[in-house]
């Protein structure tokens, strides 16, 4: 079915694999980093602690570093010989280097600053006096977070998730450095397009994948708008 439909649209199996992998990597990368993103955003928005500025800098570093540097650092840390890479391999059998899981990790790391920034702004916009009211009503801090802060920040959390997803779809530099460009394993839409630009006569593949990238990015933006509008409409219901 997929073959027939793909052939009808003119996609080669390799292009289909790249599209599927892009969606898988971006979905898993952004969803898996969401709990960490929410926790980090809350820390930066609501807590004062020594080293906060340093943490802020570390989280936002992937936004300003050349992506190839981030990719290389991931290779050093999470490659087969890296400190974390070796530990994760021996304890849980998780391998990142030259696997799709590595592409998901690279996408998550690159999207993380955007996600944290969006969620942090929405947590900062929650009236701290409402959290204080929750505390005065006997709620422990975790309950205040889950019953007051998080529901009121929900539109920002959704926007942050989708922004992280869209950033992950567009991820290129860190991915190709960390997990290379292996068709069927780590080749995403972005790295596939790059590959085709190096081949003569692949113009139609480039055009097809470019259109797919535009459709996915556009769909993510529209979905984020609609979801945020629905969440704030629900919050305003009688």
């Amino acid at each position: 079915m997929q073959q027939g439909f793909g052939a009808w649209l003119g996609f080669s199996p390799q292009e289909w694999a790249a599209i599927g992998l892009s969606l898988k990597v971006a979905t898993i990368g952004s969803l898996a980093s969401l709990p960490f993103g929410i926790a980090m955003a809350w820390l930066l928005a609501r807590r004062q602690f020594p080293g906060k500025l340093l943490l802020y800098g570390l989280v936002h570093l992937p936004l300003v570093l050349p992506p190839v540097v981030t990719g290389w650092l991931l290779l050093i840390a999470f490659g087969r010989q890296g400190i974390f890479g070796r530990a994760l391999d021996s304890c849980c059998g998780i391998v990142f280097s030259f696997r799709w899981t590595g592409a998901a990790l690279a996408a998550a790391v690159m999207g993380f600053p955007l996600m944290v920034r969006t969620i942090r702004l929405s947590i900062e916009a929650v009236d701290a006096r409402l959290e204080q009211a929750g505390e005065s009503l006997g709620a422990p801090p975790w309950a205040v977070f889950f019953t007051v802060t998080l529901p009121l920040a929900a539109p920002g959390v959704i926007a942050g998730l989708i922004l992280g997803f869209a950033r992950a779809i567009g991820e290129f530099g860190a991915t190709i450095t960390f997990v290379a460009n292996i068709p069927g394993e780590t080749q995403t839409i972005a790295t596939a397009i790059y590959g085709y630009t190096q081949e003569p006569g692949a113009e139609f593949s480039i055009v097809r994948l470019t259109l797919v990238a535009i459709v996915i990015a556009f769909g993510a933006l529209i979905a984020s708008e609609l979801l945020a509008a629905r969440v704030s409409a629900r919050a305003a219901e009688p």
Partner: peptide
């Protein structure tokens, strides 16, 4: 939260 003191603030501060 352990004092069990009810506080009616100047502005109602209801959860919207």
């Amino acid at each position: 939260r352990l004092r069990r003191i009810g506080y009616v603030f100047q502005e109602p501060r209801l959860f919207p």
